[in-house]
Write a protein that binds this DNA or RNA. Structure first.
Lengths: 209, 209
DNA sequence: TAGATTGTTAATCGATTAACAATC
DNA sequence: TAGATTGTTAATCGATTAACAATC
């Protein structure tokens, strides 16, 4: 891997797509894949793919292509998926339960190790074989189970409070589904997933057809 | 509104954020808001906000700011939210059920009018006061209820088939949660929501800390 | 009027696309 | 060797930031 300066957000967001496509190619028993074929499968230009990959190192063979197993391993390593991060979902409503059941996370190597809620009626129930625990025990459990990532799936009004607790508990990153701007320390990594954006932009486009 | 040429995707994706923040400001009883204050609330520079808005028209008053009600109405119109699109969710598993219950869509003016599944055990049940119907009746129901947007929440293996059915049924747009590249006619608007990207990019960043 | 704030133009920064030498 | 395909540099395109005139 190079100095890795100046990797664009767009590039990083494409890496998971490469990873998934390589996994599928692997399942198909394909040994070698070209940037052309990868691009065809993803709807991305081959130049873009070569550029993205080249910013992390030389993973291909000129005149040949990329070895699927090797490239998948490399992309997985770049994304840090081999760390097998421990994750916890906070807020076990409809969305939280859906996330707790999301199988693609398993495929990516994440381990769901805890679920938290506030509601006594929800605490003690089990979702996807994981017990829902009291949010008041979060700090203790985050330490005990070495939880790296907290997923916020509570209503907007409670999200900042949950973020504060996650930061205090010492997670490395937060994946936030609440539609608000969070205040977290500069050093904390946070990714916001705002489902309103996708649907609204779809509305924008169909309005103009 | 101007000719509206060359509106960037980034700009369109920020409009829903402006809309939401304006709604909240409205709830607080705020009449006038500056790009500075909007920017502070959203973590976006005021220049960016003014530029975004200015690409659709002149909504502000120099030396004063933006009238909250008026700007919200305008942004809503730009996004086409006043069309009150009828939406349907296909695939009522954990994620589909969560989407069917997502209250923020109501806030944005979308109407959930149908749910579809294949599984006889799911068909006939009710989620968020809407009955789950047989996916085989999709075309008829899409016509009858004038469904504009189909939301795909089925496993990846079935997603292309569902997309084909939605296209055939005549929806205007598709919001796709299955992690695959869909093949749809050029004229069909499709927005892909890939939850793996957010979590993977978080993994990338915390790996490098 | 003086102060505040928009809308717009110009400058910069960043990302994608094109082209092609290197090489398997 | 000839053909194929990567990796990299240069050119283009697009988006953000800076600056400031217009004006409320």
């Amino acid at each position: 891997m190079k100095g890795q300066v100046n990797i664009s957000k767009a590039t990083i967001d494409r890496l998971p797509l490469y990873f998934r496509t390589l996994r599928l190619a692997q399942d198909e028993g394909i040994d070698i894949i070209s940037s052309d074929e990868l691009g065809r499968r993803l709807g991305i230009t081959p130049e873009q793919i070569r550029k993205d990959l080249a910013s992390f190192g030389q993973f291909g063979k000129k005149g040949v292509g990329y070895y699927v197993n090797e490239l998948k391993r490399n992309v997985g390593e770049i994304l840090g998926l081999n760390n097998h991060w421990n994750i916890a979902v906070v807020g076990i409503g409809h969305l939280g339960a859906a996330l707790a059941n999301y199988q693609n996370f398993v495929t990516l190597g994440f381990n769901l190790v805890a679920l938290f809620d506030q509601d006594p009626n929800v605490i003690g129930t089990t979702v996807n074989h994981v017990k829902v625990e009291d949010i008041r025990d979060m700090k203790k459990i985050v330490k005990e189970r070495n939880i790296h990532i907290g997923i916020i799936a509570v209503p907007a009004a409670f999200a900042q409070g949950v973020a504060d607790k996650l930061v205090d508990a010492g997670v490395k990153g937060i994946w936030n589904f609440a539609p608000i701007k969070m205040e977290v320390p500069e050093t904390m990594h946070i990714v916001n997933e705002d489902l309103s954006i996708g649907l609204s932009s779809l509305s924008y486009h169909i309005t103009r057809k």
